Simulated assay, not measured.
Amino acid sequence: MSDRPDLTPPEPEQPSASDVLGAALGGAARRAGLDPADGKSTGRVVWAAIGGVRGILESVLPGLVFVVAWTLTYDPATKDANLPLSLGLSVGLAVVFTAVRLIQRQSAAAAIGGLVATGVAAALSLLTGRGEDNFIPGFITNIAYGSALLISAVIGWSLIGLAVGFLMGEGTAWRRDKRKRRVFFWLAIVWAGLFAARLIVQVPLYFAGDVTALGTLKLIMGLPLFAPLIAVTWLVVRALYPRAAKPSEAASE
């Protein structure tokens, strides 16, 4: 039997599912400008998260044009409107936004995602001939996001916590801190509540076939609620992870 030491290098440790998920969520948050370690002001963070003026236009205009076109062409006698025109204008705007980004060689991921979502919704609505079916993909998205956030909070693996843990370089160590676990639990619950509120308000309008009210409330419950919640989340996370004083600041104290 040989006494020579085993020089075989140890196999690298495989990342856990929580590490992979945290890295994915954290990476997405960082690309959106949501990195608590950057020291940006809350206003700048929210502005970056919504994509600035262009992001607002890309997010709001297609839906707004659909609602306006539907309302202007709506015939109370037949209780119908010019669906192809309304959808065509909406999808056309999404195509223009995506094309402009591609021509300018800018990141078009968000615009392409919006174009795909708009196109799928329009195709479904044209297939059924019902304007309200244009909002079904949005319902599915809200159900998926809300359920994921709610379940993650209940089982103690808040998706907010996983993302922040990756951004702050502590992985899942936050789960050993009762205060952080409690805060990330409630942040996930609040975000899940936003998606649930959209469904509670909008689904009854869908079954009532009130396309104008449904489209209007979708816009109102979009960025106007998303932006403040981003700000609140940012402020709470920054309070959990106060920045260390710079050497020059420490020396002056």
Rank of each mutant, 00 (worst) to 15 (best):
D6N: 00
D6H: 04
S18A: 15
L21Q: 01
L21E: 10
L21K: 08
A23R: 13
A28M: 15
A32V: 09
D35H: 04
P36F: 00
R44Q: 15
G52L: 07
G52N: 10
G52F: 02
I56Q: 11
V68E: 04
D80H: 13
D80P: 06
P84R: 02
L89P: 00
L93Y: 08
V95F: 08
V95R: 05
T98V: 02
V100G: 10
R101K: 14
I112V: 14
G114S: 07
A121L: 07
S125V: 05
S125D: 07
L126K: 00
E132R: 05
P137G: 00
N142F: 10
Y145R: 13
I151H: 06
V154H: 09
G156V: 04
W157K: 15
M168I: 11
G169C: 01
T172R: 08
R175S: 03
R175M: 04
R179H: 13
R181V: 05
F184G: 04
F184Y: 09
V190Q: 10
W191H: 09
A196G: 06
A197E: 11
P204S: 01
P204Y: 06
Y206I: 01
F207R: 05
A208H: 10
G209P: 01
G215F: 00
L217F: 08
L219D: 04
L223G: 04
L225W: 12
I230N: 01
A231V: 03
V236Q: 02
V237C: 06
R238I: 11
A239I: 05
R243F: 10
A244C: 12
A245D: 15
E249T: 13
A250Q: 14
E253I: 12
